[in-house]
Amino acid sequence: MIEVSHLYKSFDGVDVLTDINAKFYDGKTNLIIGQSGSGKTVLVKCLVGLLMPERGELMYDNRDFLKMDKREKKRLRTEMGMLFQSAALFDSMTVLENVMFPLDMFSDKTYRERARRAMFCLDRVNLTAAKSKYPSEISGGMQKRVAIARAIALNPKYLFCDEPNSGLDPKTSLVIDELIHGITHEYGITTIINTHDMNSVMGIGENIVFIHKGVKEWEGTSKDIFAAQNEKLVDFIFASDLFKKVRDVEMREAASGGAAARRG
């Protein structure tokens, strides 16, 4: 579990994160949602150590990340996997080499064992056929799948995904969501996904943290979200007509269900 307490981060005197408190659970897809510029990416960057918060506590299974020395941080980072918005695959390496890279760097296994593990990860994302291709030769969705394979190569305990569906069509987004969700449950990973894609929120949101202007406004599950009373969350979620209609249907069903229950 990752636990954030009273986290603050600012840039040039402007507060970007203010007193963030949140828990991200093992074996669950934890979502950080919010509008563009709300501070989601900054929070994820603070979580992985790419940015240093000014104040607060950041506990990885009771290990305080902000108080660790360089060596401890390095060790913890081998337990992390990250899927970037742009996939961030190494251009000069083939798909297989990309997935093998963390293994080459940190594993003491033989070349054959490392290659077998990399092939297993590629098989998990259904990309064994593309192993000899370069990132520029495959589609955006495939690049994201390779990045997932690379992120899980070292069996991470924590998986971070920064807007994994950005730039993808709805069908491919669904594939990526299901893949992340499946992997999270299969390996019991603490997965944190930073997104503003409402399909992801409704599909895989097991623990959702809503951030507005750097402040945590709401926390719950995808089931709770339609009944949420937080005005800012309601504004964010029901910005689209489709979700307004879904909410109306849900509320009508709830009301008629309640009436039927009273009659019964």
Binding site: K74, R75, L76, R77, S86, A88, L89, F90, D91
Partner: peptide, 17 residues
């Protein structure tokens, strides 16, 4: 520079490299 803007350098850092 391209590695930096496409987050490849961040990816290396997060791996602990």
């Amino acid at each position: 520079g391209t590695m930096r803007v496409t987050q490849q350098i961040d990816a290396l850092e997060i791996m602990g490299i």
